[in-house]
Nucleic acid binder design. Structure first.
Length: 198
DNA sequence: GGGAAGATGTTCT
DNA sequence: GAACATCTTCCCT
């Protein structure tokens, strides 16, 4: 599979967030391959966005966000869960795209085993914490180059099937709740929440 | 050193 | 729809 490259990630964060929809997230391991198609993302910006982890400057936690585009930014939240982001924009700016939901493609049995829950197929990877569990992504991938195995982003030549894109407000925030920076594949069954809010 | 909040998921009503 | 488990990070005292 052809991989998404630096020229893809180094663009405006909102463009990358929108354009990631329909492409592949792939994870190889000794247990096998797990892949899925990205169907929901959120953009976190450097300017006028208090919900962004980089809003108050660089810290040890968010340092990866200020590095090269195309790296993984993975952080631990609520004592149980990881969230997977793709660093975007120019180096030093501090922006990223949160991958919130994917549609499972390869490795469904492995996904079920890792999730360890008797849930329907549409509930296996429809949320940032769920997909990290399903793809076995943890903080050891923080700073990982997403152009390299075992965690990478693949080009989908039939990405047009995952259009049009709908824009909504972001999920789970206590600040900047009104910003239209969440992007979903219209009508997709694997979204973490309904595609319209309000 | 302490405390509050957090880009969530699950379970219960 | 609401409560809560769980723990790291960061800001404040």
């Amino acid at each position: 599979m052809q991989l998404l490259g630096e020229n893809f990630f180094g663009r405006e964060t909102v463009e990358v967030a929108r354009d990631l929809l329909g492409h592949f997230l792939c994870r190889e391991s000794a247990e096998g391959l797990v892949s899925g198609i990205i169907v929901e993302t959120e953009a976190y910006l450097s300017n006028n966005d208090p919900a962004c982890h980089a809003a108050r400057g660089k810290t040890s936690r968010n340092a990866v966000m200020f590095g090269l585009p195309g790296m993984a930014y993975v952080y631990f939240i609520y004592g149980n869960h990881y969230c997977f982001n793709v660093v975007t924009g120019q180096e030093g700016v501090g922006e990223a795209v949160l991958v919130r939901s994917v549609e499972p493609v390869d490795g469904l049995p492995l996904i079920v085993a890792r999730r360890g829950q008797a849930v329907s197929k549409t509930n296996l990877t429809n949320g940032p914490g769920k997909l990290c569990q399903a793809f076995d992504v943890d903080s050891s991938f923080n700073g990982h180059d997403l152009r390299e195995k075992p965690l990478y982003l693949g080009l989908n030549k039939t990405v047009s099937q995952y259009r049009p894109v709908k824009t909504t407000t972001r999920i789970g925030l206590s600040v900047a709740q009104d910003k239209p920076l969440r992007y979903v594949v219209t009508g997709n069954a694997y979204l973490s929440r309904r595609e319209y809010l309000g």
